[in-house]
Design a protein around this nucleic acid. Structure first.
Length: 210
DNA sequence: CCCGTGATTTAT
DNA sequence: TAAATCACGGGG
C-alpha cells in the first residue's frame, strides 16, 4: 500500500555511504542534494558523479595515503562532505564514502536544478540558461553556495547541507552512462578507468558527456 | 584555444 | 623558501 507520507523527505542513512565509492557514486544518481545556506534553500537532483578510490588511485587527493589538513575529512566516516578549493577560485564537493580510514569519495559533478532556481541564477551571474547553473562540479557549488566552510559537514545529520532520498532503488544500470573521469589525464593507468557516472541522455550532465 | 587565481604540495 | 601544480570555468 502507499503510505500517506510517501512524499515527506527522507535523508540518506549512514549505511548508504559506508560502501565502496563506485557503489556510492552510482547510487547518488537520482538523489537530491539540498543546501540551506545564507537563509536560502536550493536543491537539485544529482545526475553526474565520479568515484575516487583513495590510496591506490593516482587521480585521488589521497593517493599514496596522503594525509594533510586539506584532505582530513576524506579519512573520516562516510556521509560527510569533502569540499576543496582549487584554481584560485573554484570549490568542488565530494561525498565521503567507506568507513573511517578509507579515504574514498564520490565527486558530485552535476545537478538538475529543482528548488531555488532564481537564487541559483543570482549566485551565478554568468549563467544564462538553466542547464548552465549546475553542469559542472564548481558550478553547482557556486549555485548552492557551497564553500570550504562546509568541508567535513555531516550530510546525515547536518542542517545546512544534506541528501534526501528521492529514489528508493538504484537507477537501472542501463540508464547509467559511464566513462573516464574528467581532468585527470595526469593519472596514467587510472586516467582511462570508467569511474565517471551519469544519467544516460540527461541534458544537465556536464560536457563532454560520457 | 588560452588564461585567471591562490591554496596546497613538492622541490630545492 | 621558491616553484610547480591543479578532480575548473569562461571567453575568444
Amino acid at each position: 500500500m502507499i503510505s500517506a507520507d510517501a512524499d515527506i523527505p527522507v535523508r540518506l542513512p549512514r549505511a548508504f555511504f559506508r560502501r565502496d565509492p563506485v557503489r556510492v557514486a552510482r547510487a547518488l544518481l537520482g538523489q537530491r542534494l539540498v543546501s540551506r545556506i545564507g537563509g536560502l534553500r536550493t536543491a537539485g537532483v544529482i545526475v553526474e558523479t565520479e568515484a575516487y578510490l583513495g590510496i591506490p588511485d593516482k587521480a585521488a587527493h589521497t593517493f599514496g595515503g596522503h594525509r594533510t589538513e586539506r584532505v582530513r575529512s576524506m579519512w573520516g566516516d562516510g556521509g560527510h562532505a569533502y569540499v576543496y578549493f582549487t584554481y584560485g577560485m573554484h570549490h568542488c564537493m565530494n561525498v565521503v564514502a567507506g568507513t573511517p580510514g578509507q579515504p574514498v569519495a564520490a565527486l558530485i559533478r552535476a545537478l538538475q536544478p529543482e528548488i531555488g532556481i532564481e537564487t541559483m541564477f543570482a549566485r551565478r551571474a554568468k549563467a544564462h540558461r538553466e542547464i548552465d547553473l549546475c553542469s559542472g562540479p564548481a558550478k553547482l557549488c557556486q549555485a548552492l553556495a557551497i564553500t570550504r566552510q562546509h568541508d567535513a559537514e555531516d550530510l546525515v545529520s547536518g542542517k545546512t547541507l544534506f541528501l534526501e532520498q528521492r529514489r528508493g532503488r538504484a537507477l537501472p544500470l542501463a540508464r547509467i552512462a559511464c566513462g573516464p573521469r574528467v581532468g585527470v589525464d595526469y593519472a596514467q593507468e587510472w586516467a582511462a578507468r570508467p569511474l565517471r557516472f551519469a544519467v544516460a541522455g540527461c541534458r544537465y550532465v556536464s560536457e563532454p558527456r560520457p
